[in-house]
Design a protein around this nucleic acid. Structure first.
Lengths: 123, 123
DNA sequence: CTGTATCCCCGAGGATACTG
DNA sequence: CAGTATCCTCGGGGATACAG
């Protein structure tokens, strides 16, 4: 598990350590849509391997951005959700998405929009 | 040079391709403080190598987020600045920084604040 | 279903020397 | 000053098999 430093020159460096991983922003984004199970996330992000999914989720959990809830059943059921703090990032992620959409439009890039922004705006 | 895809499932994936590089967010952040020369950036981010700095700047430039201005002098002078579009990301970066600051405070992480947020807020 | 455990490859990126 | 050009290492991350 990647440890955070005890001191940072600038908050942006801390943020990069927290959500700079290859899949973390994507995971947080999808978890902000709603709680998700392990294989549900795999289906949402088909390119991710089990190993990477586990690892990135564990780091997000370790840093307090994601909560992991295990239901003691057979077969096992595990649900991932964002913590209050992870959820605080939502406006930022949303801003990123908007900016990305702007970029795509300006550059004529196609978007198969899994766009959850509207839901967010209603709040 | 890393090419963008012609189509994305979701804007967040595009954003990750645009600024997901190891140093890109950091570079954009520092360039938002003001235009900077090559070695100035190296001093600001001592851990980055010349190679990486060049490469990441070239990608940002290629994607239209950063502008590179060469002054034909001896010795050469090259100034990097954010484009209008790159600048549009500033509120997002600022939001990330605020969130990082919150996190640091909650977790008791030390911050040697190169904090340019205040300047931003005045606008 | 939700993961570990292993093995292994490949390419991001560091170190260093050189250049216009 | 602002980069290229080379070489080489190292670990991120894929593939696969196995486990509770």
């Amino acid at each position: 598990m990647k440890e955070l430093q005890s001191e940072y020159q600038c908050a942006i460096n801390l943020v990069i350590d927290l959500i700079g991983g290859k899949w973390k922003v994507l995971l947080l984004w999808h978890l902000n849509e709603g709680d998700k199970r392990f294989n549900e996330l795999r289906r949402t992000i088909p390119e991710i391997t089990r190993k990477m999914l586990t690892q990135q989720l564990r780091e997000l959990e370790g840093h307090g951005l994601v909560k992991r809830t295990v239901f003691e059943e057979v077969p096992p059921r595990v649900v991932y959700s964002t913590t209050d703090f992870g959820r605080k990032l939502q406006p930022v992620l949303y801003g990123m998405c908007q900016w990305g959409d702007d970029y795509a439009e300006e550059q004529g890039i196609q978007m198969n929009s899994c766009w959850t922004g509207q839901d967010f705006m209603k709040k």
